[in-house]
């Protein structure tokens, strides 16, 4: 692991305590799994800390793990301009209670990504000012990137104009 990132992860662990559930390292990508209650705090600290600030939120996206518990995962990528390193946060939520506090107060650029995650997975972001569907029509009822949604869609879910 990159020493800079190692330090950041260490400090995150210290500050968040048990809320940091797990740290995964794969091919030098560091994923810090945190509880959803601290995601805003973690994002704020990542943006504002002095040693290695991460001013750019690159991406927010959902994953349907399709497990019985903690079905949905949401990943956040942050990039540091000073150190040129990345850190990834991951939040896991239950299907029945798929709610995560929004980080748009910290990173305004995450706004559309959170909308996209809502559109595709139905994970809601509490406190988001403008949580609408971004790709699908607003009357669409399903969440297409969930694993139980078929690739070719459900017939009749999206209307077509009549041929005449």
């Amino acid at each position: 692991m990159n020493p800079v990132i190692e330090k950041v992860v260490h400090t995150l662990r210290e500050r968040m305590g048990d809320a940091v559930e797990e740290v995964r390292v794969f091919r030098d990508d560091v994923i810090v799994v945190v509880d959803r209650s601290v995601v805003v705090e973690a994002a704020t600290w990542l943006r504002d800390n002095d040693e290695c600030p991460f001013p750019l939120c690159e991406d927010v996206f959902g994953i349907d793990a399709y497990t019985r518990t903690k079905r949905f995962e949401v990943n956040y990528h942050f990039f540091s301009l000073a150190q040129h390193v990345r850190i990834h946060l991951k939040v896991r939520v239950e299907e029945e209670d798929a709610q995560i506090p929004t980080i748009t107060g910290v990173y305004p650029g995450a706004g559309w990504y959170e909308r996209e995650t809502y559109d595709m997975f139905g994970v809601t972001f509490t406190g988001h000012r403008d949580l609408r569907r971004v790709y699908m029509p607003e009357e669409f009822e399903y969440y297409p990137l969930r694993k139980d949604y078929p690739l070719m869609g459900i017939p009749g879910a999206l209307p077509l104009p009549k041929r005449g």
């Binding site: 790709y135 699908m136 297409p144 949604y149 078929p150 690739l151 070719m152 869609g153 459900i154 879910a157 999206l158 077509l160 104009p161 009549k162 041929r163």
Partner: peptide, 14 residues
């Protein structure tokens, strides 16, 4: 071949 793409515009246009 996906959920959001019309499989041929002849479904709604001559």
């Amino acid at each position: 071949r996906s959920y959001s793409v019309v499989q041929g515009i002849d479904q709604f246009l001559p």
